[in-house]
Amino acid sequence: MSFIRTLHGDIDPKQLGFTYSHEHIVCRPPYWAEKGEDDLLLDDKEKSLQDVLDFAKHGGRSIVDATAVDYGRDVEAVSEIAKKAGVHVIGTAGFNKSFLWEAKLPEKLKPAVGNYDTFYEWIDRASIHQLAEFVIKEVEEGLEGTPYKAGQVKFGTGYNRITPLEEKTIRAVARAHHETKAPIHSHTEAGTMALEQIEILKSEGVDLSFVSFGHMDRNPDPYYHEQIAKTGAFLSFDGIGKIKYGPESTRIRCILELVKKGYENQILISGDTARKSYYKHYDYGLGLAYIIAKWVPRFIDEADRAGFDGERLVRLFFVENPARCFAFKK
């Protein structure tokens, strides 16, 4: 038996439909708020709603909101947007990367985690077991004390390194996965350290087919992608539209290389739309409709020209693969 856990209840995987695998809808990351980085604060529920409605208008059915506890979630706002837009939203328990932990711990979290000053202090002083228990509670009871449960668990590491505290959160998330059967998502900074993360996950007995690795297009290295795919894990190409990191041709080439090697069932696509300047209704960016309305037709054209069935691949990447990747299997 398998199911997908959304903010508004568990659903059959067949109900998921066209899915973005890594987005941020409403969030106020404490680290960036303290630095005065307004572009990184998605803090207007109504503007976020308008972009989600654009996505839904083009046939979008589900969004994975990858906002972890240290990235300033607004669970109530996102659950309201999901309801108003008529889309499924999968919430995220767990952690991001370590430099974010320099920020002050919000008062609302202290009853649940302890009266620590910063995220760093909490993660440093808590045991792996205590961190795992926090993640488990967010999957089984609700995010930050709300009734809205997480549908995946997450960890992250920095650029070309894994700190001791990041390793601690990987192990905590792995143990929460074993307890809950929730799928795992990995943040890889600029697409690095996935293979090193895999070694830690293996030492915790994790079946890699339950794991998706984010930001793979930030490291457009087909050999590296193949080594990850060989483990059975999913690879998320979630920087669509971010030309500052590389042209779409590079992303599409990497995706089609994986297809050519037989890994088409392990590919996910999204935009990681985490800035006001990426959103249409905040700051005239490409917006959440861009992938489904404009990138997908281009991908189909390029895939067809390369001898593949582009429409079939789109269905795999946005419907069938997410339905397997984000399922709890008990």
Rank of each mutant, 00 (worst) to 15 (best):
G9D: 06
D10M: 02
P13N: 01
K14V: 00
L16R: 06
L16T: 01
F18N: 08
F18C: 11
F18K: 12
T19V: 08
S21H: 04
H24M: 06
Y31W: 07
A33S: 10
L40G: 04
D43F: 05
D43E: 08
E46S: 12
L49F: 13
Q50Y: 03
L53Q: 13
F55H: 09
F55K: 10
F55G: 12
G60M: 07
S62K: 04
S62R: 07
D70C: 06
D70K: 06
V75N: 02
E76Y: 05
E76D: 13
E76H: 08
S79H: 05
I81N: 05
A82H: 03
H88M: 02
G91Y: 02
G94I: 10
K97D: 10
F99S: 05
E102I: 01
A103P: 02
E107P: 04
K110F: 02
N115T: 09
E121C: 00
W122C: 06
W122N: 09
A126I: 08
F134Y: 12
L143S: 02
Y148I: 05
A150H: 03
G151Q: 03
Q152H: 04
G158C: 13
Y159H: 13
I162M: 13
I162W: 00
T163K: 10
P164Y: 12
K168M: 12
T169L: 14
T169Q: 15
V173E: 14
R175G: 04
A176M: 13
H177C: 11
H178I: 13
T192S: 12
A194C: 09
E196V: 12
Q197E: 14
Q197I: 11
E199N: 11
E204H: 08
V206D: 15
D207F: 01
D207M: 03
L208Y: 03
G214I: 06
D217N: 13
N219T: 05
P220T: 13
P220W: 04
D221R: 04
P222I: 02
Y224F: 11
E226F: 01
G232W: 02
A233Q: 04
S236K: 01
D238P: 00
G241N: 10
S249R: 15
I252L: 14
C254Q: 11
I255E: 06
L258H: 02
L258A: 07
V259A: 09
G262H: 09
I267W: 03
G271R: 01
A274E: 01
R275Y: 00
H281A: 09
D283G: 00
G285V: 10
Y290G: 06
K294Q: 15
P297F: 04
R298M: 15
I300T: 14
I300G: 11
R305T: 04
G307F: 04
D309C: 03
L313P: 04
V314L: 09
V314H: 08
